[in-house]
Structures are given as C-alpha cells and as structure tokens.
Design a binder for these strands. Structure first.
Lengths: 117, 117
DNA sequence: TATTGTTATACTCTATAACTATA
DNA sequence: TATAGTTATAGAGTATAACAATA
C-alpha cells in the first residue's frame, strides 16, 4: 500500500514523507525542523535532506525564529502542491476503503488507531 | 509495529524477512529460491544474501533439484528456530489485538486481508 | 546545561541490469 | 526461448555520533 501511495504521489514529485511534512505544516504553520521530526517520528538529522529538497523545489521557506531556530512555512507553490497531495491521498484512501467489505469498513480506522496508540 | 516485531525477533537472531521465509518453508518444504521470492514478493536477486545468511546459520539447506534449481529445506535447527519465531510472532499478534477495543477486534484481520488482495 | 541545525557515516531494504548455465 | 541462481550496483529509508552555535 505504501509503495502504491508513493507511486501516485510521484506524479506531483513528492515522496510520502514529503507529503506528510507538507500536510503537517499545512495544519500548523511555523513549526521548526526539530518539531516536525518529533511529530512525524523522523530523526532530526534526516530532516535536513528532506527539507533541503522541499526548499530547492520552492515548496517551503525557512524563516529565522531567533538566531538558532527556523520556522518552516509553506510557500504559495507549497500550498498548491499540498492541495494536490491531499487530493491524491484522499482518492487513495477511498480506493482502499472500497476494497473493504461493507460490514468491516467502519471498524478499520478505529482499530488501526488503537494499534498505533 | 514492524520495527517492534523486528526488535522481538532479533532475540532469536532473525529478521522479519528471515522469519517469513522460515514460516513459508515450514508450510511448504522444498520450494526454490525463486518460488519463495515470488510468494513473498522479494526480488530473486535479494533472496541470495537472505538465504546465504540462513544457510550460514545452518537453519536451511540447499538440496539440488536438478542441475539448475535448488530446493530449500529446513534443517532440524531451522525447525527449532521456526518454532521460536512462531511463538514470538503469535505473542506479538496477541499483544497487538489486546490494544484494539473489543467491538472492532474481529473486523481488523478481515479488513486488512481485503486491503491486501 | 539542553537544544537546534548540521555533517558524516553506516546499515537495511529494495530495485534493476547483466551474466552463466540449464530447462 | 524462458528460467534459476548469481553478482554488482544504486537509491531510498533510517539510525547514531559528533560538532558549533545558541537558548
């Protein structure tokens, strides 16, 4: 499922982790790189090349918060790309759900959320 | 969840893919390396180092079927290790299921199976 | 003293191309 | 002609250690 999602997101030049970061910043702007890493369970060190790619693609901007931290914000292009990523992932989720027999469907997400907690 | 399972299996010196291969051979002996790869969705080329490790650990043996193919069989040590791997994964599954609220529990596996098909 | 951003590095997983030997 | 086993290699994902600068 993850490789299928990765495949679909590659149509807008995003990896799954890229899309996760865009969605997180879209929901809460001006988080730092370290914040994002903590929330998405990505090591601080591994955020660097990820954000560098998003920065190079002009999807995010780094705005100094103080002399140590940077706030990550979406550029207009990043907001547009986020909408595309959302459309793709929502369609993907609908396609997945369509495979689940109707009597099990409403139980899947609550059960998965319980596993994850 | 996969990294938690990997962690538990490392107690018996197995990776998740090692355990999958042992379980498959345990269920159907004398498959070839290519068979196993097809059934577990592992590239033929990536089966080589995997089986080399299991072979070096004396958990499997390669028995010539003809001059081209090799049948993979479990050694006695491999059968014992398989029992340990089964005990660990079954406990893991019980632990996971215990987190799922009772009203959703019986729906999870059928829903996941439907997703996978 | 703890945290941020960063560099460097290593290991695992996965994918592809190519080769040989055989079915 | 297709398949088995193999080698080599590259790209991702992920983990750790270390460092300078700053809170």
């Amino acid at each position: 499922m993850m490789s299928e999602l990765a495949n679909r997101l590659s149509a807008v030049d995003l990896r799954v982790s890229d899309a996760s970061v865009l969605m997180l910043i879209g929901a809460e702007d001006s988080l730092t790189s370290s914040d994002i890493g903590r929330l998405l369970d990505i090591q601080r060190a591994n955020m660097v090349p990820l954000l560098n790619r998003l920065d190079a693609a002009k999807l995010i901007a780094r705005v100094p918060l103080d002399r140590k931290s940077m706030a990550i914000t979406l550029t207009p292009l990043g907001q547009e790309r986020l909408r595309e990523a959302r459309a793709i992932t929502e369609q993907f989720e609908r396609d997945l759900m369509a495979r689940v027999p109707e009597e099990h469907r409403d139980h899947l997400v609550p059960a998965l959320n319980a596993l994850w907690s």
